[in-house]
Amino acid sequence: MNAAAPSDDTLIRIRGLTTVLSGKKVFDALDMDIPRGKVTAIMGPSGTGKTTLLKHITGQMRGDAGQVQVDGKNVPELGREALYALREKIGYLFQNSALLTDFDVFENVAFPLRQHTSLPEVLIRNIVLTKLQAVGLRGAAQLAPSELSGGMARRVALARAIVFDPMLILYDEPFVGLDPIALNQVLKLIRTLNQTLGITSVLVAHELDAIKQVADRVFLIANGKVVAQGDPKTIAGDGSPWTRQFFGGEADGPVPFQYPASDYAEALGFPRSGA
């Protein structure tokens, strides 16, 4: 948008991010550039730190070293006010929906609007119902979160994440628990939001087929680093051992299936057989 700044087509710029959590190096000098106005997918084995990465982008967590720049601002250095001002422009879909159990579906989606605007009730109603219609749950507006199935809750959370038409939306596993029909609708929604409103989307997901349909770019992270990146349609066949193992679903390879642990035989009490 601001053509003067050359860095402008990169919305999120991560440099040398290093984070140690309970003794484990989750990120090891991670570098990543997420383009503005595009759909970017982040993939990686479970427990590799995808959710943690999103938390760094929203400032919920701070790394031990490195920079996380979002829209030109270094998130770890922001004060409370500035951080909240930034968050108002970010939509976030939780891995576990995280709906407010105090309110019904309608009020959950309306929550960000009520908190940050003083729009008239009619307008709020229109916006909320539009978003609920988009995720196919307008009829469920009066239900309580406890009355929803997991997939429905996920879609309500999605409606809430997009209700503000933010600059950036972070989706943590948006496709989990969706049936093929809902999955297609959500995919269409992500694409529409991106194409018509130019909303940058970052999605963490494991479904390569779905990612191929929406994402412009994909990052594969493992062992605290970006190990592969590129076009989702071609990345699986780029020939690197990482992608071969990950997309081939092989247990053996550079990505360990096991969480770092002591020797198995030793833990079971057998004498070491010797290597």
Binding site: Q60, R80, R87, Y92, F94, A98, L99, Q115
Partner: peptide
């Protein structure tokens, strides 16, 4: 426990 507090933080609600 159900991340509602975190969700509020992310919706810029303190």
């Amino acid at each position: 426990a159900t991340d509602q507090i975190a969700a509020m933080e992310l919706m810029a609600v303190d």
